[in-house]
Amino acid sequence: MKVLAMDTTTKSATVAVTQDNVLLGEFTLNSDKPHSQKIMPLAEDLLVELGLQAVDIDLFACASGPGSFTGLRIGTAAIQGFSQATGKPSVGVSTLEAMAYTMGEVLDCNICPLIDAKRDQVYYALYKSGTEMIAPSMESIDTVLAQIACLNKKTVFIGDGAEIFKDKIIATSEQFSVCPAQLNVNNAVGVALLAQKKYEQKTALKPFPEYLIKSYADELK
């Protein structure tokens, strides 16, 4: 099964193609150019380089959020477009779960993906060996770190939020560590692998945006 996956929910625009859970290729641009201008040329270039056409793909997948609102609309719309044009199925997976999945399910520690939501807020969740321990939510970084420190477990933080709040994370607990910088830029291969798994298990969701908003009114209290 060939999967084309994309993630436009954070600053990085990333597209990957996998075949039977093996990566065939991945293009990632972590630049300031808008996703709307980056993502389709990346997808096209990747297919050309692999000698594939859109109709050769069996499953289209995107990270459906949380993250940048405009970004996740672009990703879900693009994947729905591919799906409609080719008649092939499309699925969406949680950005946070895909980030944790990139780390593998074998690590014997908690994995906490963090996405920067500005104003010292983050989108976060907690996973252990692929199991969701804390459901995706949005909170201030201080609240998140205090909550996870209470669990008193070895925890690895990943994502652009982990990069931004690195010093704070490490200072909070000796049990906490932060992924090296190269893993903190989202890439689409995790989305592709997780999407295939969920699709085969028939637990996949439609590619609709997961905004996961907390109202401004709540946020500013």
Binding site: D32, S68, F69, T70, K118, Y211, I213, S215, Y216, A217
Partner: peptide, 17 residues
């Protein structure tokens, strides 16, 4: 109201360069 600013992704402009 302020909530409407969500739908236009106001933050992405506010925190841009």
């Amino acid at each position: 109201d302020t909530e409407d600013l969500y739908s236009i992704d106001f933050d992405s402009y506010l925190f841009s360069d």
